[in-house]
Amino acid sequence: MSSQPLLEFQALTFERDDWPLFSDLSGTIKAGEILQITGPNGCGKTTLLQVLATIQPVNRGTLRWLGNNIAQCLQQYLAIIAFIGHKPGLKLSLTPRENLQWLAKLQPLTRCTSAEALARIGLAGFEDVPCYTLSAGQLRRAALAALCMTQATLWFLDEPLTALDVEGIANLEALLLEHVAKGGAVVLSSHQPLVNPLVRTLALDTMAEAGL
């Protein structure tokens, strides 16, 4: 694997009205790595993920992708990232298939068809039912099905285990391992520990205290 980190963040500071949520946070994410952000509620896990995925602007600090400042190559960066937040991002009146097909028009979801992805994640047979008939766990699975399809190398997952059952968690872990084995990288936030030797953790509460 290349020594060049996939993503590098230097001295990131995020403030709400001059109260730092985290400050001077630095780190790298290399290909083949799973980085788990841990910390108590309200310590800024979601915000950090959103900052890394360019959804929220940073106050200070730089983000570099393969050595390039992200502000200069935003479009290319967006083409190699996938983000799944708390909210599943699915339209309840559409079917899982329709939702994924819409997403495939916007983001590089070309590895397999939506039917294959839904089968892989354990939703075979639910392709064409409206999403409002699905349970919370099934909705989460439908959202995660996008990961089976995406070409993105860098995944940002905010609490991906929420509402998943044992089988769903196993499915997701297999998916993550397969992804990093191929040279991808994953940043995720979770309270639950992942049983996986590849996982490196970044404890946000201690970082924030150090920054303060």
């Binding site: 995925a53 360019t54 959804i55 967006l78 990232i81 983000f83 937040g85 708390h86 909210k87 599943p88 991002g89 699915l90 339209k91 309840l92 939702n99 997403l103 916007l106 983001q107």
Partner: peptide, 10 residues
């Protein structure tokens, strides 16, 4: 429902 963020990340 979160799909706006997906649109914006295109």
């Amino acid at each position: 429902d979160g799909s706006l963020v997906q649109l914006m990340l295109s």
